[in-house]
Amino acid sequence: MATTKWSIDPTHSEIGFKVKHMMFTNVSGKFGTYDATITTEGDNFENAAIEFSADIASVDTANADRDGHLRSGDFFDAENHPKLTFKASSFKKINEGSYEITGDLNIKGVSKSVTFPVEYSGILTDPWGNTKVGLSIEGKINRKDWGLNWNSALETGGVLVGEEVRLNIELQFVKQA
């Protein structure tokens, strides 16, 4: 069977995250510059090869000072680690619309295996004749597992920045000719 390549459609994708701030509200952010590819056998997504990278310099939380802090050595250290990467080791079908993705997430030079549930849209054709597929990924990681340790104690108890990072990722891919 022929190998099929799928490229990300950045105008219909979003790499989002949320972190608790001051223990009670969420701060949302996203990466503006990223790339992802999928390689499948024909149109079968089971066991697909999936690779993703995001430019750390493109982190955006709608606050320039906070974004600068996130790029610094306290967090992502963009100067020495300009990209966050993910390479799937498994993409397993659970049932018709559900998959599970496992792979190595590399942040700040630290690589850890993670597993997330994936909602799979199926293959669709857009009004312009492009063959597309959509994937929605939600999951949680602990930022300290990747050495993103900075924090500040609050006078009232607790910490300024939560350890749990919730991921909310919407990806649309276009089949390549």
Rank of each mutant, 00 (worst) to 15 (best):
F86Y: 10
G162V: 11
W146F: 15
T125V: 13
A88I: 06
E138M: 05
P117W: 01
V114D: 01
K112V: 06
I101C: 01
R143F: 09
S136E: 08
T125Y: 05
V118D: 00
E155M: 11
T85P: 03
A78I: 04
F116G: 00
V118L: 00
E163P: 08
F116V: 02
K83D: 06
L124V: 15
T102A: 14
E164D: 15
G157T: 11
I123W: 06
I141V: 13
F116D: 01
L135N: 02
G122V: 05
L135F: 10
T85A: 08
T125Q: 11
Y99C: 01
G97S: 13
G129T: 10
E138K: 12
E79C: 08
R143S: 14
G129N: 10
D104C: 02
E155I: 08
V114F: 02
S98P: 01
W146E: 08
K140C: 05
S152G: 12
L124W: 10
S90V: 04
A88W: 05
I101V: 15
P117Q: 07
S113R: 12
A153L: 15
N142P: 06
G134E: 11
L105T: 05
K132F: 05
L135K: 03
W146C: 07
V159Y: 15
G139M: 07
S111T: 12
S89P: 02
E163W: 09
S98Q: 15
S121Q: 09
V118K: 00
N95R: 09
G122D: 09
E96R: 07
P117Y: 00
K87N: 10
V161P: 04
L160P: 07
S136D: 08
N151K: 13
H81S: 12
S111Y: 09
G122E: 11
